[in-house]
Design a protein around this nucleic acid. Structure first.
Lengths: 143, 143
DNA sequence: TTTGATGTTGATAATTAATATCAATACCAT
DNA sequence: ATGGTATTGATATTAATTATCAACATCAAA
């Protein structure tokens, strides 16, 4: 795992922007990097509360945003639920199969689909920058 | 256009559910059916206000939800913006190219991609019900 | 047609998530 | 060590959606 590398990227970004390193920032980064996939602000806040009673919700939120800015994290929004954050560094681009019953996210990838998307964009004089593909249905366990 | 058919579906659904027909309900339905694509509650509310001063925001909202229930409308959420509703009846399934600059939605469709998505789902023991593909980038005019 | 049970409306309140504010504090270049 | 300033954490604000409820409208049955 490139967790060390991810930290480097974060701290380099901070320095470059003239921002500062703090105890909380580091805690949040580490907690995020070792947390499960598709975590919410609440999730991370609750994890951090256990070891840092004083940490604030807004601080967790702000720093997750910061991780998105520097390319370490991605925001994903599903339905009307709250925003989830997932690790981007060291994780290939992927799409999601989302179980409507248990809420499980399955990460998938298909090069062919990616290429067809690119073609589709070109055919519409559109310059694609990123995309989101979510397939909703029932997973193995739930059907 | 099957606007008449769409109305039939709506009223049949209402009757079937033991719901009632109202002046507002009909106004909202008709306004929605003749409105442009990807409309928000606000948009529709403002359109309706012109001909029915007394109509309530909540009523518009509730009835758009109802149209989703009966399969005439679909909710689409992009980024952190407000929910948009689009007509489903008489409109083939499609995906969206979304311009990050001007916000324009371009509707696209690719059978090959659809089939590959189905395969991808099967390969993961997943029963797909619906999906959402959004490609973000810059449209012809904006690049 | 009248009636009455009940679904609907419209105004407003409540809820929820994301973000802004700001005084106190912590960081770090000098 | 210190001073300028970014950060924190508590709280307020914003924004969208949904819930509440009394007044009203609908429609099936009489």
């Amino acid at each position: 795992m490139g967790a060390g590398k991810a930290r480097e990227i974060f701290f380099a970004y901070i320095k470059d922007k003239g921002l500062r390193n703090t105890k909380q920032r580091e805690e949040i980064l580490d907690a995020f990097l070792s947390a499960g996939k598709h975590i919410t602000v609440d999730d991370l806040y609750n994890i951090l509360k256990k070891t840092d009673q004083a940490i604030g919700y807004a601080t967790v939120h702000r720093n997750l945003k910061l991780m998105c800015e520097c390319g370490l994290a991605d925001e994903i929004k599903v339905g009307s639920n709250k925003t989830r954050f997932e690790q981007k560094y060291g994780h290939e681009h992927h799409d999601h199969l989302i179980c409507l019953k248990c809420g499980r996210f399955i990460e998938v990838h298909d090069d062919k689909i990616e290429r067809l998307q690119e073609k589709l964009s070109e055919a519409n004089d559109f310059v694609a920058q990123r995309h989101k593909l979510e397939i909703y249905g029932l997973c193995k366990k739930c059907r």
